[in-house]
């Protein structure tokens, strides 16, 4: 546990000492802020029209009209930004030669992986928490339902946790950060859009594909529904890639 903490705090210090964390967090805030306010404005226009015409106002609410589209967009931003956080985790150590030291110290592989994974997850939690500003602003000016916002955030957190696990795994495969980052992006994108193929596939395949999709499982979170099935999906995916990372560290010893 002490060893895990030593690695975890070193990694966190690295993120906040280099510009990585600040760069990623501020880009994230700017982009999500942009989406938030443009969608909010679009929603305003829609609701003004609705008031004028006095018709489809029944369908219009802040959660469906603002928070859900914003969260959908945030998931795409995460797809691009999280690999930037995770690509260095193990690849950089391999490049620098510190990996060999790490693996010859009396530290277990799970402590190494947990320290690294959780440090990236912490940075992500910080950056996600910073965007809570937007729903708070929304509360000042309007009266959104709180639960869907909270469940949406839970969904985003779990989705990011899976992206980070995928990123940790690819970072353990190579000493080239760029390759690690691009593979993470590719595989995460696949998980995000795999549901699109569902309507084209046969009945069984279609069910499998949508079960695998990030977006399908995110859907209920953004509606304010917390389903254990969806939570299990993200936790399983995260655990699976962490497991693969551990295997990859082990086989790094066997192969190289």
């Amino acid at each position: 546990m002490r060893k895990f903490l030593a690695i975890y705090s070193r990694e966190l210090r690295y993120y906040f000492r280099s510009i990585t964390a600040y760069a990623v967090i501020s880009i994230f805030l700017v982009l999500s802020g942009y989406f938030f306010f443009s969608i909010f404005r679009f929603y305003n226009v829609l609701s003004l029209q609705a008031i004028k015409n006095n018709d489809f106002s029944g369908n219009l609410n802040l959660v469906d009209g603002v928070m859900r589209p914003v969260m959908g967009n945030i998931s795409v931003i995460l797809l691009i930004l999280l690999p930037l956080l995770t690509m260095r985790l193990i690849a950089e150590e391999k490049k620098q030669g510190t990996f060999e030291l790490l693996l010859t110290l009396p530290v277990s592989d799970p402590a190494v992986v947990a320290g690294k994974y959780l440090s990236a997850l912490t940075v992500y939690a910080v950056m996600l928490a910073a965007t809570l500003l937007y729903p708070v602003l929304l509360m000042v000016f309007a009266d959104p339902e709180i639960p869907p916002v909270l469940s949406g955030y839970l969904g985003l957190f779990l989705m990011g946790a899976s992206f980070i696990a995928i990123g940790t795994f690819f970072s353990s495969l190579t000493s080239n950060q760029l390759i690690a980052g691009v593979s993470t992006f590719g595989v995460s994108l696949l998980f995000l859009i795999i549901g699109w193929a569902a309507p084209l596939a046969g009945p069984v395949m279609s069910a499998v594909l949508s079960e695998l999709s990030f977006l399908v499982h995110f859907e209920s979170f953004s509606k304010g529904v917390i389903d254990t099935k969806d939570i299990t999906y993200y936790l399983f995916l995260t655990g699976f890639f962490i497991f693969l990372t551990l295997r990859s560290l082990e086989s790094a010893r066997w192969r190289s």
Partner: peptide, 16 residues
């Protein structure tokens, strides 16, 4: 590992 100290060929330093 507990009882051994090791300097790898490629220096194992965190330059940051």
């Amino acid at each position: 590992r507990k009882r051994t100290g090791y300097l790898p060929e490629k220096s194992p330093l965190y330059t940051d």
